[in-house]
């Protein structure tokens, strides 16, 4: 009878992803290209906001976009129609992007001529929060119709983001969304998070958000 022995492993799961993500950040620093990871639930307004952002800053900064969806290429087509280089990643059932998938997307772009790449992550408030994409900053959108209780239900997403965009504020009047309660809940999870209120429909708040993005990008690539 063979004896059972114990082998020490002591390895973190996802460690591989963290290594790839760190390497990616080094590469972006060397290329002087800012990388932003944009997350939200499906339909909160990622693609529309990216298009608005492009409109606002494409004359100042050279931008590229990586679109991730479980299937379909409609989002990348919309971005390409705005005159911006876009890569569509089909995650084929995966509920999130990881750093090696982002790396593949970046390999399809000429980083030497780009100041900034925005990643539109898969629409999902759970899984993308757990996987480091290698981005320099993480931004999430919460849209007004989703409700002000989302930080209570999806705390990790709110904890890992540098910026929260409360979007579709043109719906505020018709809803019982409590902005004060939302802010309190978010800041209790993440006191350092920056919160902007936006509407891609009316254009409200887009300038302030774009100013933050411009500043973050120029600081990084300087």
């Amino acid at each position: 009878m063979d004896e059972i022995r114990l082998i020490e492993v002591k390895e973190e799961i996802h460690a591989d992803n963290k290594v790839v993500a760190e390497k990616l950040r080094d590469r972006m620093a060397a290329e002087k290209t800012f990388l932003l990871n944009l997350m939200s639930s499906p339909g909160a307004g990622k693609t529309t906001l990216i298009l608005k952002t492009i409109e606002t800053i494409k004359d100042d900064l050279r931008m590229g976009v990586i679109e991730a969806d479980i299937d379909s290429i409609v989002d990348a087509e919309k971005v390409a129609a705005a005159g911006i280089e876009a890569i569509q990643l089909r995650t084929g059932g995966f509920c999130h992007l990881d750093a090696s998938m982002v790396e593949k997307g970046l390999n399809g772009l000429d980083l030497s001529v780009l100041d900034m790449v925005i990643i539109e992550n898969v629409g999902n408030l759970v899984c993308p929060a757990e996987f480091d994409t290698g981005a320099i900053k993480n931004v999430m959108i919460l849209s007004v119709p989703e409700g002000d209780d989302k930080p209570l239900k999806y705390p990790l997403m709110f904890s890992v983001c540098d910026v929260l965009l409360v979007n579709k504020i043109d719906y505020l009047e018709a809803s019982d969304f409590n902005m004060t309660a939302l802010n309190e809940r978010v800041l209790a999870l993440n006191p350092d998070i920056k919160i902007f209120q936006t509407s891609s429909k009316t254009g409200q708040g887009i300038e302030d958000w774009a100013a933050w993005l411009r500043e973050a990008t120029t600081t990084f690539i300087r």
Binding site: I4, R5, L6, E8, K10, E11, I13
Partner: peptide, 12 residues
């Protein structure tokens, strides 16, 4: 609080 870690394993 969310981490996952393989500590060790029993093998033959």
């Amino acid at each position: 609080g969310k981490e996952y870690y393989i500590k060790n394993m029993e093998v033959i």
